[in-house]
Design a binder for these strands. Structure first.
Lengths: 222, 222
DNA sequence: GACATTGCATAGGATTACTATGTAATTATG
DNA sequence: CATAATTACATAGTAATCCTATGCAATGTC
């Protein structure tokens, strides 16, 4: 079936848009996309190693090293030795870095407006589908571990009977639904493999059934 | 509500993956991502102008010009004058270009596998949601016109009672469902603005209702 | 203690990407 | 119809991206 190909096409188009938009946005601060991504990551998540940043950005270590050097030169981050390992260093924010990151750490309005064009039901399904796809990429080793519900020790999928909020987060101790699934949660704690696998079963396989959805609409035109 | 932000986060993560993957794939043919995108476009859609390619790729015209020059140097495309405009030139494929493009024009297996991890119902909703989002980006002027059902003169949304295949394509004269929506169709013909607007109403607003879907699941954890 | 591994920087090279500008051809305007 | 504005494209110049390859120092392993 060709739906997978069209999904890939659509995701690539949005990816193209995000990349070109990141150049436009970064230029205002005389940063580049890679630099601004590193800066925002360090500001939002605290001191980080160069190699860890390279993994997150999906670039090689020398590329991240270059970008980090540029940020240091511009005074937006500082390098300090890592007390846990004398070979490593940690990138820390500076005040100017925090100022700039506050302006960069937002998504383009056009993309948020596009997501807002979905109705609430679609948003929930879309977010759940994104979760499944990213989890799949992660299992395949194509992307690094993500701080998402699917791998979180606090995630309790499908434990409530309420179809609007079937899941539970043991960290904030609250029920929530698909539309509130996190793909990058600050409180994430990686679950042991066995727990993650069990949670994934409960989450993914319940899928359409728990939502009382109609049979699949897979009619093909050609 | 924060679902839009999480959707943007997830799309950006997949975009990051696609970009890093495009570097890995292109290196085998000693091409770069921009070059391979241009090559594939020219092979799949015929001779093209540099400026048109720049629009599609979301880069500036000089960037596309550089990449085109590299492809010409490598012998994968040829430049010929455009008979319709003596200022312009068209990039044409060569035999070596077609050989290489055949290998490049596929999506990474990991991404197709990720899309395959969705159940058929989710795929349909996901593809429809992608269509809505890309259409929204297009209306906002953030991306160029896409060869998608939403803007096609042959698209007849929601004209059949069959919930599996409610839409109709007047080009192939066949019914189809959300899972077969095109985001980059070779037979696309841009509809007049008024027709496109009417079709869009029929397509987007029918949404969840026509699918007999449950009320929105928007429970929030925080 | 020898050896492999890890974290990171640097070197070297091709490409990407930008802005700014120039040239030539087309289109618009008076 | 001649002048002006626009369009298509290339080039120059600069900075960053991104790669592989390599070197160095610290860490872990046996």
């Amino acid at each position: 079936m060709s739906a997978e190909i069209h999904i890939a096409t659509g995701l690539a188009k949005i990816g193209t848009y995000l990349r070109s938009e990141s150049w436009r946005q970064a230029e205002g601060e005389s940063l580049t996309p890679t630099q601004s991504q590193i800066l925002v990551h360090v500001v939002q998540r605290g001191p980080a190693r160069v190699t860890a940043l390279a993994d997150v950005l999906g670039v090689t270590q020398p590329t991240a090293s270059d970008a980090a050097a540029a940020l240091i030169r511009k005074g937006h981050v500082k390098r300090r030795p890592d007390p846990a390992d004398a070979r490593a260093s940690l990138l820390h924010t500076t005040s100017s870095g925090r100022d700039i990151a506050a302006k960069m750490a937002v998504w383009p309005d056009a993309l948020l407006a596009a997501a807002d064009a979905l109705d609430p039901f679609e948003r929930g399904v879309f977010l759940k589908a994104l979760t499944k796809m990213i989890r799949s990429l992660q299992v395949q080793g194509a992307v690094p571990v993500q701080r998402m519900c699917a791998t979180c020790a606090f995630f309790r999928p499908n434990v409530h009977n309420d179809p609007v909020a079937p899941h539970h987060c043991a960290f904030v101790d609250a029920a929530f639904g698909d539309a509130a699934l996190r793909l990058d949660c600050g409180d994430h704690e990686t679950a042991p493999a066995s727990q993650a696998a069990a949670a994934w079963q409960a989450f993914a396989l319940a899928g359409a059934k728990s939502m009382d959805a109609p049979p699949a609409a897979t009619g093909e035109a050609s």
